Computed example of a mutant assay.
Amino acid sequence: MNQPRMDPADALAELGRVRLDETNLDDMLRRIAELAGRSLPRAREVSVTLVRGRAGWTAAFTSDLARQLDEWQYQEQRGPCLDASASGASISVPDMVAEQRWPAWAARARDAGVGSSLSIGLPIQESVVGALNVYGGSANDFDPPAIAVAERFAAYAAVALANAHLYDSAATLADQMQEAMRGRAVIEQAKGIIMGERRCSSEEAFALLSKISQDSNRKVRDVAEALVAKAARKTRA
């Protein structure tokens, strides 16, 4: 990370100013990683882990090194970021040389130039949890005051992520409902055309649309759109 440092309080204020209607969940994740990397004391690299079920992935990171440090843990299905995600606790690795809980991962981190780490659980919503991971270049980079600053940032980040996730889900649902309504409208138009041409009932018209859909291996909506478009061309001719 080569971006200028900033005061942790300014980072929290900037995080609070992010408008949910002008961003999406992925952008929020990247913003959290960036602000954490610029403001948390002794942070060399930062990443955000998300976990759904047993699957973990790095949703945002400040460098490929941060992503690799996480992915080594996913491969082994064990490590501080996964434990922090599951427990919601803060897990510190003060010294990669002396680390005994995850010795293989610590050795790889040490070889990559990382001396210590801090993972803080992020409860986001029922099916998705995560962790804010901070990696230091030297041993004992994260003393109690630094951990306190990181935990405060993580608390704000968890709220921001939960809100962004809810907003993103609500926006997706609204789009799906609008799409469904448009699909229903065109199907009703197609049924009206069939009823007018064949002098049949609404149920019979829909049954015909369904049969054409099955025979042609197309969605009912696609069949309806084609029928409505054909009728419109006839009208213009």
Rank of each mutant, 00 (worst) to 15 (best):
R30I: 03
W105N: 13
G37W: 00
W72H: 11
D215G: 02
R152Q: 15
D222P: 10
L173I: 11
A131F: 06
L29E: 11
Q178N: 14
E34Q: 15
C81A: 13
G16C: 10
S127P: 04
S127W: 07
A36E: 03
L40V: 08
A148L: 08
R31C: 14
R19L: 13
S47C: 08
L35N: 04
A131S: 15
I91W: 00
G196N: 13
S119F: 08
A60I: 07
A104H: 11
E99N: 08
N163D: 14
A36M: 01
Q77G: 06
V223K: 12
F153W: 05
P123R: 11
L118P: 14
R221C: 08
P80Y: 07
A205H: 00
K191C: 12
D21E: 10
E126T: 12
T23M: 01
D83L: 11
L20A: 13
E197H: 09
L161W: 06
L122E: 03
G115C: 04
G56I: 05
A106K: 06
S117Q: 05
R221T: 15
A224E: 10
Q176I: 08
N133Q: 11
A112Y: 06
I120T: 05
A170C: 05
Q100N: 10
F153C: 06
A66I: 06
S47K: 04
Q68S: 14
Q77T: 05
A84G: 02
E151L: 01
Q100D: 09
N217D: 15
A89K: 12
S119K: 01
V48Q: 04
T58I: 14
A112F: 05
V51W: 00
P8R: 04
A86Q: 10
M1C: 08
A36Y: 01
A164I: 12
A171H: 09
K230P: 00
N2F: 12
S63I: 08
G183L: 00
A229F: 07
T23S: 13
A84C: 09
A89F: 03
V186L: 11
A162W: 01
Q125F: 15
C81I: 08
S202N: 05
C81K: 07
R30N: 15
L15F: 04
V149C: 11
L69F: 08
A66V: 00
Y156F: 15
W102T: 06
R38L: 01
L118F: 03
A226G: 06
G183C: 02
R67T: 09
R108F: 02
D21G: 02
A160F: 01
K219P: 02
V48W: 04
A170L: 12
Y74I: 07
R182K: 12
G183T: 02
G196I: 00
V128Q: 09
T49V: 03
N2Y: 09
V93L: 09
A207D: 14
A205S: 14
A155H: 13
P145A: 12
L132M: 09
W105Y: 12
L12P: 00
R184I: 05
D141V: 02
G196E: 06
Y156W: 09
H165S: 15
I187M: 12
D10E: 14
V186N: 11
L173R: 14
I124T: 06
A207W: 04
L173E: 14
E197C: 08
E34R: 12
